[in-house]
Write a protein that binds this DNA or RNA. Structure first.
Ligand SMILES: [Mn+2]
Ligand SMILES: [Mn+2]
Ligand SMILES: [Zn+2]
Ligand SMILES: [Zn+2]
Lengths: 156, 156
DNA sequence: TAGATCTTGATTTCGATTCTCACTTTTGAT
DNA sequence: ATCAAAAGTGAGAATCGAAATCAAGATCTA
């Protein structure tokens, strides 16, 4: 019974992290930040700012887009969100995952699949070590077509 | 005696590819295109447009930067250059290599090392296959510090 | 050499993101 | 509750890399 994807506990944890960060830094909590944070944590992941703003404005149409930019930067700073750039010229955000993962991106429909492969991770570090490189982060993205888009392509 | 890095033969091949492409498409060859292409093929690799333009203008200060953008797009189209994006907000270009490679990027000094690892490549395709994904391209970048920058860091 | 076609370079436009600033909200102290 | 200091907001301007526009120039072919 462990996977009904009820992430409300996780959401609470993340909001708590933000609360502490705001307190530490002498920042202020605002209705805008609360709304944006909630919307972000509940929404589908890998959201662009435009998508997030649209979602947020359903609840409060007066939110300015600068505020969404600023809030996402804040969430990234305090470590509950991660920025992603999949080469379409728009930064996307996802809630920071428990463990690292990489991405398969369908260039047909934009679908994004996540994967984790310990063997690849190990080999990356091996390659870096051989070159005296100290890896801080990495980016592995596979671009291609998902099954549905492969079928669509054949029909053409 | 196989590695004096005299790539003039390679350069000629690439220029020949461009010549054919220009002919096929009914384009015209111009002094600007020749100069930009030569400069690009001779320069250090992973050049940003700004860097390339600077180099080009040493020979001909009247070259406009739109021409450099257009020419690099052309070289990419005809398959003698590849675009790279290492997350610093500037597209970089390198002459298309004989075989695929990935990159280690030093976030300290900007140095870029290239590597090839057949094992990683294989695993990537395995991961994709398991998910019914047809990979068209991929991007693997390791960000971190080169040895020199690690030393500099310690001194701080 | 003419003339159709393509190319150029200066400039404008674009789209994503950041900045600016007058006005508002939060917060902690009275 | 009231106040003042500090931080946050939203609208619009500024920025930056890249792409589009367009009048003037170069190329190529018949
Ligand atoms: Mn993800
Ligand atoms: Mn390279
Ligand atoms: Zn798809
Ligand atoms: Zn370095």
């Amino acid at each position: 019974m462990a996977s009904l994807k009820d992430n409300s506990a996780e959401r609470q944890e993340k909001k708590e992290i933000l609360r502490r960060y705001i307190e530490e830094k002498g920042l202020k909590s605002t209705v805008q930040r609360d709304l944006i944070t909630d919307t972000f944590l509940k929404a589908k992941t890998h959201l662009s700012l435009e998508e997030l703003l649209r979602e947020v404005r359903k609840k409060n149409p007066r939110i300015g887009y600068a505020t969404v930019y600023r809030t996402m930067k804040l969430l990234t700073e305090c470590g509950i969100a991660v920025e992603r750039n999949f080469g379409d010229g728009q930064t996307r955000y996802e809630p920071i995952p428990e463990s690292h993962h990489d991405h398969l991106i369908c260039t047909g429909c934009g679908k994004i699949l996540e994967f984790e492969d310990e063997r690849i991770e190990r080999l990356q570090y091996e390659v870096a070590r051989e070159r005296n490189f100290k890896v801080k982060s990495h980016k592995l993205e596979l671009y291609g077509l998902c099954l549905e888009c492969q079928k669509k392509e054949k029909r053409t």
